[in-house]
Computed example of a mutant assay.
Amino acid sequence: MSRPVRSVLVERPGAFRLVEGPAPEPGPGEVRVAVHAAGVCASDRELFDGTRPAEYVRYPVVPGHEWSGVVEAVGEGVDPALVGRGTVAEGFRACQRCERCRSGEPTLCTTGYAETGFTEPGAFADQLVVPARLLHLLAPEVDLTSAALLEPAAVVAAAVLRAAPRAGERVAVLGCGTLGLLAVQLLGASTPVELLAVDPRARPRELAAELGASRAVAPDRLDGERGGFDLVLETAGAPGTAADACGLARRGGRVVLTGVPEPGARGLDPVELLVNQLSVHGVFGAPPAAWSYAVHCFNHGLLRPEKLVSHQLPLTSFGEAMRLVGSGDPEVGKVLLRPGAR
């Protein structure tokens, strides 16, 4: 007799329980995945605390949008050869019919927001059912545990593709959390003449240097850097980092914003944008092309997410994972839940 499938159900902000039930059956066009590892990020903490905007969450919900696993069953119309393959999957459930989707911008789908782990059952569970069309298959030899970080890597890939780095440019990354450290790796592959990482915390700066930054400094050490960078990628989402990113960019430079600030963040100066002719782009989520790019880089060793993982916990330690992610401890990197660790 098979074991019951466990999942973490957040019933409402601050209230969760571990539930058990039968294995979910994939419907037509779907697959069932045995979850290997699932990352916990700040947006999961927002979901738990009740601070995520109401239009971007639907309670009760099983969280978990960053994950890796192995396909173990397929529904009608899905290639049975997928069974046994290591995989990750896009989280956005775009309609594929609206004008934005048909223009190749599914993260701007106009039919409403739907995403694994926020409005659809996520990966803080033993098993997960997702549409097969969202899968991105992994090379057989890769590490499934670090593959759980491919969702944030895809967001960074979307930012890098939008930024279009060129060899020999001066590049800066603001924030050395998960997104920032992944950005350092992807931007380093474009051979910049300088790759500056900025973070107030010592340990993330050390990791940035290990992962390819030519310099890693605290924000209070940026005197003299203003206006000197061809490309600035902002990942921190702190109240002033979007404005700081624009201040670091040279005249005619490019800025890409990926960090999501809380209300009250300092706005951008329109005069500065106009006079300096800055190109500023925002990235929220990742389209299929960015997922393909991130998975390609991971499969070929250009991304090394394993260095970002600081904690691996069993599914039953969801409460501890929430405490760690919200602790502010600079020694806490990426926290993973491992459903297989009973």
Results as ranks from 00 to 15, higher is better:
S146F: 15
A147W: 07
A147M: 05
A148H: 02
L149V: 03
L149Y: 05
L149N: 05
L150D: 01
L150I: 06
L150C: 00
E151Q: 15
E151S: 01
E151Y: 14
P152T: 14
A153Y: 06
A153D: 04
A153R: 06
A154T: 12
V155E: 09
V155W: 07
V155P: 05
A158M: 08
A159R: 07
A159C: 03
V160L: 09
V160W: 09
V160N: 00
R162N: 10
A163Y: 03
A163N: 00
A163P: 02
A163Q: 07
A164D: 14
P165R: 09
A167K: 07
A167G: 08
E169M: 11
E169S: 04
E169A: 02
E169Y: 08
R170F: 08
R170M: 10
V171A: 01
V171I: 09
A172M: 08
V173P: 00
L174Y: 11
L174W: 13
C176S: 06
T178Y: 02
T178C: 08
L179Y: 12
G180I: 07
Q185K: 12
L186K: 04
L186T: 07
L187W: 01
L187F: 00
L187Q: 03
G188R: 14
G188C: 04
S190W: 14
S190V: 12
S190Y: 14
S190T: 15
T191P: 05
T191V: 13
P192Y: 02
P192D: 09
P192H: 11
V193F: 05
E194T: 04
E194N: 05
E194Q: 13
E194W: 13
L195P: 01
L195W: 01
L196Y: 02
V198Q: 04
D199C: 14
D199L: 03
P200V: 13
P200R: 12
P200T: 09
P200Q: 12
A202R: 15
R203Y: 11
R203W: 12
R205F: 06
R205K: 04
E206T: 14
L207Q: 10
L207W: 07
G212S: 02
S214C: 00
R215G: 01
R215D: 01
A216W: 05
A216L: 07
V217P: 02
A218Y: 10
A218L: 06
A218S: 13
R221Y: 10
L222R: 07
L222P: 05
D223G: 15
D223F: 12
G224F: 10
G227F: 13
G227A: 13
G228Q: 15
G228V: 08
F229P: 02
F229T: 01
F229N: 02
D230L: 10
D230E: 12
D230A: 14
L231K: 04
L231Y: 08
V232N: 00
V232G: 00
L233V: 15
E234K: 03
E234R: 07
T235R: 05
A236R: 09
A236W: 14
G237A: 10
G237Q: 11
A238L: 15
P239F: 15
P239L: 13
P239I: 15
P239E: 13
G240K: 06
G240S: 14
T241S: 10
T241K: 09
A242W: 15
A242P: 02
D244N: 10
D244C: 11
C246R: 04
C246E: 03
G247Y: 03
L248G: 01
